[in-house]
């Protein structure tokens, strides 16, 4: 199965979404990334029991931080999908790309001030 993904999406593989720290998410925005999504396993199906739930909490925490520093928290999302859902993954990549395009570039790159 070959699914077309938008070329602008860079995949960073981690052993579990629970490995993603708040700092990693924030650092991505500091470095100018326009949007980030964390793809965790379906809820209740984490191999490490609660990794994806922790990831969700961290995503929510960082969304709050982004809002406080003037970056649209919509640029960060959490999705839950299984390893067998390749087409859904591709769909999310397109969705996020569309969303980020609508929002425009990360203000970190333009210095245009708060967007929220």
């Amino acid at each position: 199965m070959r699914l077309e993904c938008p070329p602008n999406v860079k995949v960073i593989r981690v052993p579990c979404s629970g490995r993603v720290e708040s700092f990693h998410l924030l650092k991505a925005f500091e470095s100018g990334v326009d949007g980030v999504f964390v793809a965790g396993c379906l809820e209740g199906e984490c191999h490490f029991l609660i990794g994806n739930l922790q990831a969700k909490r961290r995503v929510n925490y960082v969304k709050g931080v982004l809002k406080a520093i003037g970056i649209n928290p919509e640029r960060l999302q959490m999705y839950n999908l299984s390893a067998a859902m390749g087409s859904r993954f591709a769909e999310i990549c397109w969705e996020m790309t569309e969303k980020v395009k609508r929002l425009g570039p990360n203000p970190v790159k333009t210095g245009r001030g708060k967007e929220v």
Binding site: E30, I69, N106, V108, K109, T110, R112, K114
Partner: peptide, 20 residues
Amino acid sequence: EREVRFLASAIKTARKAQGR
């Protein structure tokens, strides 16, 4: 240390977004 690292990143991001 972790909080320092995180807050530094948040401040720098906020400032970059303001072009300063």
